[in-house]
Design a protein around this nucleic acid. Structure first.
Ligand code: MN
Ligand code: MN
Ligand code: ZN
Ligand code: ZN
Lengths: 148, 148
DNA sequence: ATTATTATGATAATAATATTCATTTTCAAT
DNA sequence: ATTGAAAATGAATATTATTATCATAATAAT
């Protein structure tokens, strides 16, 4: 989806919640929509401050929380103690594999896995709303050196 | 495995690391080995203090870290911001499904999923060392009331 | 028993996240 | 355009889980 499309969705979401549009929010959201990584708040704040020096951490934090709630951003935790956000993927849900040496992150989709998850849950009487699947290992570049 | 078996393994592990055996460590480990839940440090400390009031948080923390390193305990994070530990399962690795309403946790094993994970990783040039799979949803008891 | 090494536990430091609050901004009504 | 209630901002502070510090105590090899 294009930037302006996401902006419209955000505006609509704010309206339904009785929240107001502000220059800071728009700028933070716009900056985030342009990213294509799994960005931490610290990184996003730094990026935002380059153009708009007087935007505070709290506003970035609150804006990303809003984007998360609206579904425009997905919060991820890859075990390094920092929440990261990524843009809502075009092609639907995906999971991640993280290199334990160089921290490279690859994404994959596997419909069969998703289906088996639902089945496993069903057997236990659960219905699945969402899930977290992260694989940790070594990427092609790092596998040679140290597999421990 | 029985308590004394785990204790022996722990003793052996301590020895290889040049660490010493202490009454506190033994008591904390013993208390943990008797649990069959996913217990937080706070909960474990509370349990320990009932019998041994002057054991400190730091010792519980350090002992569980040791148990984790030795493979006798597995650290889990279910998204509530607290690390939880569970005993090394008898029957090998398992994954979890957590009820978003009552926090009930069910466990399951699915070899097919594990295999598909490895295959997905291989396609991306990764080798998998470990993984985290958590399903979030509603248990049988909670599904009726509020599926949102 | 001596003694070097490690453990303990109270306390403090970290670090990420969340909240407070005085001030500023938004926006609908006038 | 002005007003004013409601919400947002940002600096600072609070919270929370985790980790480190350090003086004292316990361990275990000699
Ligand atoms: Mn991703
Ligand atoms: Mn478990
Ligand atoms: Zn790598
Ligand atoms: Zn439930």
């Amino acid at each position: 989806m294009a930037q302006h499309g996401k902006m419209s969705i955000l505006k609509a979401y704010l309206e339904t919640k009785g929240l107001k549009s502000t220059a800071q929010r728009d700028f933070i959201a716009d900056t985030f929509f342009k990213t294509n990584t799994h960005i931490s708040l610290e990184e996003l704040l730094s990026k935002v401050k380059r153009k708009n020096k007087n935007i505070g951490y709290a506003t970035v934090y609150r804006t990303m929380k809003l984007l998360g709630e609206s579904g425009l951003a997905i919060a991820r935790q890859f075990g390094d103690g920092q929440t990261r956000y990524e843009n809502l993927p075009e092609d639907g849900h995906h999971d991640h594999i993280i290199c334990m040496k160089c921290s490279k992150i690859a994404e994959f989709q596997n419909q069969k896995i998703e289906q088996l998850q639902s089945e496993a849950a069903k057997k236990l009487g659960f219905t699945v709303v969402n899930h977290k699947l992260e694989l940790y290992g070594y990427c092609a570049g790092c596998a040679g050196g140290d597999k421990a």
